[in-house]
Each structure stands twice: as structure tokens, then as C-alpha cells.
């Protein structure tokens, strides 16, 4: 039972890692690759590590096993906090370095609620 769940979670996680890799290779510029990376990898890590923690718990419940499983999940929680920060730092450094995104109509920066302001 536990193993079937673990296989399910790990496969789902691998699918998201696959998405991240394909996005990294196919999308046109740095900013859009960031979309594929910053989201899919966090999700992939969370699902894969959940699956591995379930597998680690195994059949017999014991205190030390649960502790190790908890630590495995702690990695995922940590990355949930750290991942967006790392993404943000990279994007900011690229934007301040003067790299503009690839666009279809050549306008890189739009002001959003267009009616107001001005």
C-alpha cells in the first residue's frame, strides 16, 4: 500500500522534472525558461521527496524511521521557502544587468492598468 503510493508520488515528481528540463531546452529566452524552472522544479522536488519519505516509512512504524522521513520532508519545505527567493535574485540581477525579454511586438515593459497613471 505504502509502496504503491510512493511509486505514484515519485512518478508524478519525475513528470514535473521532465517538464522543467523540456522547458529549459525549448522556451525562447531566459525569462520564460525561468517560468518552467522556478515552478516545475519546486513541485517535482516536493512530490519526489514525499514519495521517498513514504517509501522510507515502509511497513513497520518506528520513531527513528519517522524522524528520517520528517527530515526528508524538511528539505522540501526549505526549498519551498528558498526557491522563489533564488528565482527572484537571478531575475533581478538579469534585469538590472540590462537584459530585456524576448517579445513578439518589441515592447519589453508595459504599464499595467493602462487607463490610469498619466
Amino acid at each position: 500500500m505504502m509502496e504503491a503510493l510512493a511509486v505514484l508520488f515519485i512518478s508524478a515528481g519525475l513528470f514535473f522534472f521532465f517538464t522543467a528540463t523540456v522547458g529549459l531546452l525549448r522556451l525562447p529566452d531566459f525569462y520564460s525558461r525561468m517560468h518552467a524552472m522556478g515552478k516545475a522544479d519546486t513541485m517535482g522536488l516536493l512530490l519526489t521527496l514525499t514519495g521517498l519519505a513514504l517509501y522510507q516509512m515502509g511497513e513497520g512504524l518506528s520513531w527513528s524511521k519517522a524522524f528520517v522521513a520528517f527530515k526528508i520532508l524538511l528539505i522540501a519545505v526549505f526549498w519551498f521557502l528558498g526557491g522563489p527567493t533564488a528565482t527572484h535574485a537571478l531575475l533581478r540581477s538579469a534585469f538590472e544587468g540590462g537584459k530585456m525579454p524576448w517579445t513578439k511586438d518589441g515592447q519589453a515593459v508595459l504599464d499595467w492598468p493602462r487607463q490610469e497613471e498619466r
Partner: peptide, 13 residues
């Protein structure tokens, strides 16, 4: 850097 980051995450798993 982005690719290095992705490879780092996979290494953790």
C-alpha cells in the same frame, strides 16, 4: 546559472 540550479535540485533527490 539556471541550468546549474536545476541540476543541483536533481542532485538533492
Amino acid at each position: 546559472i539556471l541550468a546549474v540550479n536545476l541540476i543541483g535540485i536533481m542532485t538533492v533527490v
